[in-house]
């Protein structure tokens, strides 16, 4: 029960923290301007390169990828900002359950990421005629939820790294943009070299996006069950690594008297 309370209070505080510094205009810029501009740019580039017949391939892929804005930048900043604002020693000194605190921070971004994807799909429908009337909508919704959770797992792992790195946002940005190449967003994964395909399948989104594409085409759950299970497993591994890393660095900070874990 205490853990649940920590989880909920951590989520609420995370929500309040997110909107304390961000102005509504700034939030809208991240919510609308960044994903919409990125979506339009990449769809235009894709259709220029491969023809108008592939417009929906690019629209769907890039609409799903916007969840990484929350999953990576949002989640990384929640952990990384503790250090920047000087509140990390307070967090490390608190008796709260770490896993509940850790996951509570991601929960708001999962919900925010899902709403970003909905906006991106609406833009794709409006500008590029994306028609989901024959799609398996419950399955598509499940895919979007799963992708949001798994990208938050990646964000939590990167966020833990922020405890020992001052410039985690350089890495977070790099990872975010690499997802555009590695996860089958703009072209099929099998076009990548073998070593890059190994990286691709060890990242969140790759299987989730493939499953979501099939859901958009109307595929039933049984057709994508393997992909979804794989996506969930990859996400769980990232959460586990992130949590283990966080605890290890916390212990290291305690033992060494390093207030900022560095």
């Amino acid at each position: 029960m205490t853990q649940l309370r920590v989880f909920v209070s951590s989520s609420i505080l995370q929500y309040r923290a997110m909107f304390n510094w961000a102005t509504p205009l700034g939030y809208l810029a991240y919510k609308l301007l960044l994903p919409v501009c990125q979506l339009i740019f990449l769809v235009q580039l894709g259709t220029f390169a491969t023809g108008r017949s592939n417009v929906l391939y690019f629209a769907v892929g890039n609409a799903l990828q916007v969840t990484a804005i929350n999953g990576i930048f949002g989640v990384v900043s929640t952990v990384g900002n503790e250090r920047q604002y000087g509140t990390l020693p307070l967090l490390l000194g608190s008796p709260a359950n770490r896993l509940a605190t850790f996951l509570g921070r991601a929960a708001v971004h999962v919900a925010d990421g899902i709403s970003s994807v909905i906006i991106a799909f609406a833009v794709a429908a409006l500008l590029y005629g994306l028609d989901v009337s024959r799609s398996n909508l419950p399955l598509l919704a499940g895919c979007v939820l799963l992708i949001s959770v798994t990208t938050c797992g990646l964000g939590l792992m990167l966020g833990s790294l922020s405890l020992i790195m001052r410039d985690i946002f350089t890495i977070a940005n790099t990872v975010y943009y690499l997802l555009l190449i590695l996860c089958g967003i703009n072209f099929a994964v099998n076009r990548l070299p073998g070593w890059a395909q190994v990286i691709s399948y060890s990242l969140p989104m790759t299987r989730g996006v493939a499953a979501a594409r099939q859901a958009v085409a109307g595929a039933p759950l049984r057709d994508v069950l393997g992909l979804l299970a794989g996506e969930a497993a990859v996400g769980a591994i990232y959460v586990a690594i992130g949590y283990a890393l966080f605890r290890w660095l916390e212990n290291r900070a305690r033992l060494g008297g390093l207030q900022e874990a560095l």
Binding site: L25, C37, I40, F41, L42
Partner: peptide, 18 residues
């Protein structure tokens, strides 16, 4: 003039590409 301006700039980066 405004702290949100960088967020807008960052968000509109791809708009300039287009």
């Amino acid at each position: 003039l405004a702290r949100w301006s960088f967020t807008i700039a960052n968000g509109a980066e791809a708009l300039i590409y287009i």
